[in-house]
Amino acid sequence: MREIAYEEIVKNVRDIIVYSASHLPEDALDAMKKAYENEKSPVSKEVLKQLLENAQIASSEARPLCQDTGLAVFFVKVGADVRVVGGLLKDAINEGTEKGYREGYLRASTCEPFSRLNLKDTVGYNLPAIIHFDIVEGDKIEIEYAAKGGGSENVSRAKVFPPAAGKEGVIEYVKECISDAGPNPCPPLTVGVGIGGTFEKAAISSKHALFRNIGSVNEDPEMAELEGVILKELNKLGIGTMGMGGTETVLAVHIEANPCHIASLPVSVNVQCHSSRHTHITI
């Protein structure tokens, strides 16, 4: 049984949070550059240029890319042959989150649902983190992290269709979601689509799909093809960068599919803005 110190988890989580806030990952940067080259609208092209310049300023001056530094979302795979000593893994991730957001001068954005009181002085600075655990083989801990902003989360949706809705139903639903969202979620977007499973499984899958590298190909050929079809449909909408009108509204569609009940076809759409701050580490 391998042992990992609690403090090591805290430090690693803190470090990826601080770094991600100001450094757009390579895959997102490449996708934005490609969008800039392909964009037909001069207005959207100009805004894309501003966003690339923003990424440059953010990384060279270590300033947050966006003032919405998000809620901290984690997918954690814990090896069955590893154990954290000195405290609970969940507590270590939360402590690392608080340290990262505080020491990186990031925004504390968690609040109570109705009073809207910020939780920074009660529960903790930008706490609690949203953590999804899984147990896997091996003696390592793999942590996938993303800072998830509110604007793109607000346009996300989920629905359980009857099986007869089929692929056509899924395509229409995603199209309707992105069309209604228009400029609000800060396009160009990555669109995560969770298909199958149960109601909550579809939602979590649509979130996890956003952690995949932009430009990577789905391992399932059927889903890879569907991703291509949906991407083409979404870019016909004409929304463009920040809704100014244009040809490059969506950078990528990522599908995560699961087996489901014979009676249902759950679908969830989770939207990621252009500031796709995601990373992963293995400890």
Partner: peptide, 13 residues
Amino acid sequence: FGATGGAGALLGK
């Protein structure tokens, strides 16, 4: 007026 969403570093300057 619309300002560019997600250009927080640039606009902050």
